[in-house]
Structures are given as C-alpha cells and as structure tokens.
Design a protein around this nucleic acid. Structure first.
Lengths: 131, 131
DNA sequence: ACGGTATATACCTTAATACGTATATAACAC
DNA sequence: GTGTTATATACGTATTAAGGTATATACCGT
C-alpha cells in the first residue's frame, strides 16, 4: 500500500479519533459512534474508508461489526500508527475520547451485554478472527 | 498547528518527494524542479502549500528562493518527519531522487555556481536565516 | 530604463472528499 | 414470515485539491 494512502487516511480528525480508540482494542460501530458523539452514517463512512485502505479490519459478531487495527500492519503503517499514538497523547480531544471509552466499557461490563445495547442478548462467543 | 494539517501535507507524493529532498539540507525551487522532473508550476504550488501549512520555511537568495524544513518544528511535525524519513528509506522513488540530488549537487559544485544555472553569477553569500 | 531568469499566482477544469437525507442490507427475536 | 437493531450504501451538494495554461512578480545584469 502506498504511503500517501496512509496519510490520506490520517488527514481527517474523525478518522484519527477512531484510530485512537482502536489502539489496543476492538470496538463495534455503535460504541465508536457513541463515544465520538457523531452520526452513524458519518462514522460508518469513515470506517469504510479506513477499511478500503487497509487501516482497519473487521469481523462480524451477531448484529454487530467489530473493527480493529490490522494484526499484520505493513512497516509503514505500523510506524505511522505508533507515531500517531505518540502525537495524540498530548491532544485533549483524544484523551477525552479515551476517557469516555473507559467509562463506557466499565458501564457495559456491569450491565453485562456483549455489545452496545443496554440489554444483553448474545452469549459469550469466541474472539477468533473471521476475516 | 493541527495534526490533520500535517497529514494533509503528507498525503501527496510530490510533497513527500520534496520533503525527502529537504531533509538535512536546503534547496532552491529550480533544483527541486530539476531533480523531480516536474513542471515549475507544479513544484511551486506544492511548495506554497507546504509553506502555508508551516512544513517548510523559505529565504530569498538573489534570484532564488531557498526552501528548508523549519528549524523549530513542533513536536508533532518533527515526529512525523522522522517517521517519514524512516518510511521513505525503503521506497525506490525517494532513493532515486536522493541519488539525483547527489549527482546534481556534485555537478554544480564543480561548475561553481551558487545556484541552479550553469553560469556562476553570485559571489558566495552567507547562509543566515532571513525570515 | 530594458531584457532575462527564477518564482509565484490567477484562472480554469476535473476529480476527490465530507457531510447529510434517505434507503438498503444483515442478523436477530418472535 | 414480521418487526427491530446494527450497519452500509446511494444520491445530492458543497468544499477542497491537483493539474494545466497563461500571466504576474522579484531580482539581477546591462
């Protein structure tokens, strides 16, 4: 993949916020959506863009589509993702997102569901890569 | 300066080639132009774009405008420029550009001019920052 | 002043991007 | 099957970007 395409993916604030959230964990669309406080279509399109360029991978889990960073990023991609992590550390909006993620995760671990809704529905399922 | 603006500057191949050439040295427009083999207007506009976003600084030297990387880049910028240098090391086009630069520099050091033309015209001048 | 070289900008066209509204698809519960 | 939730896509619009042609500006040499 071309280096310029990596940078094209990185030159939008919403996409950077998404990548920040996905660092070290996977998330379904509606979690991302709720954390960022942006409309569903906006999140979905940015995720599609990232996926089309290989910056994220997906797997379906029942109703939900779970996004994650690729497990084998290219040298260029992993270098840039690391650099990004380094940069966002000092930028408030990303810290706020991470904090919201923590709160949300904790909340859902208490109310028990696998994913986003307030009602638990799906039994624990294995976290194998499907795609 | 916003992180996304840095990435916007980096998401064009010509701009990456320019930044690669400017790593550790300064160059006038026509040198850049000759090395990259691209039309003057294209180079000039990309340089203007980079300058408008603070990724390069300039100084005028007689007829020529000399471009360089900023001497005090922000944390984010220097992190990304370093990452870029790391990435381009393995991409052929950038190596070719650097090789051409070396050849061109050598050639002009022999034929003596300060800058681009084949005829020397300007006496040695100090390399102080003007801007 | 004039002519020449180096660089920048105006203007145009085309393509890509971002966002929104509305709708489609996928998986589930019943 | 129907209804519901989660996610994706189609389509329209406004903005931005990239490239080209032509022209302007800046500096130099005379």
């Amino acid at each position: 993949m071309k280096l310029t395409q990596i940078y094209q993916c990185l030159c939008d604030q919403t996409r950077l916020r998404i990548l920040n959230l996905l660092h070290g964990r996977e998330l379904c669309v509606c979690h991302i959506q709720e954390i960022l406080g942006e409309p569903q279509v906006k999140i979905s399109k940015h995720l599609a863009y990232l996926r089309a360029h290989g910056l994220v991978a997906t797997r379906r889990e029942a109703n939900w589509v779970v996004y994650r960073l690729p497990e084998r990023p290219s040298r260029d991609l992993s270098a840039n993702l690391a650099c990004l992590q380094d940069c966002v550390r000092e930028i408030p909006v990303f810290g706020r997102d991470s904090a919201r993620l923590t709160r949300l995760k904790a909340k859902f671990e208490v109310s028990s569901p696998i994913c986003c809704t307030t009602k638990a529905r799906i039994p624990q399922s294995s976290h194998r890569k499907v795609e």
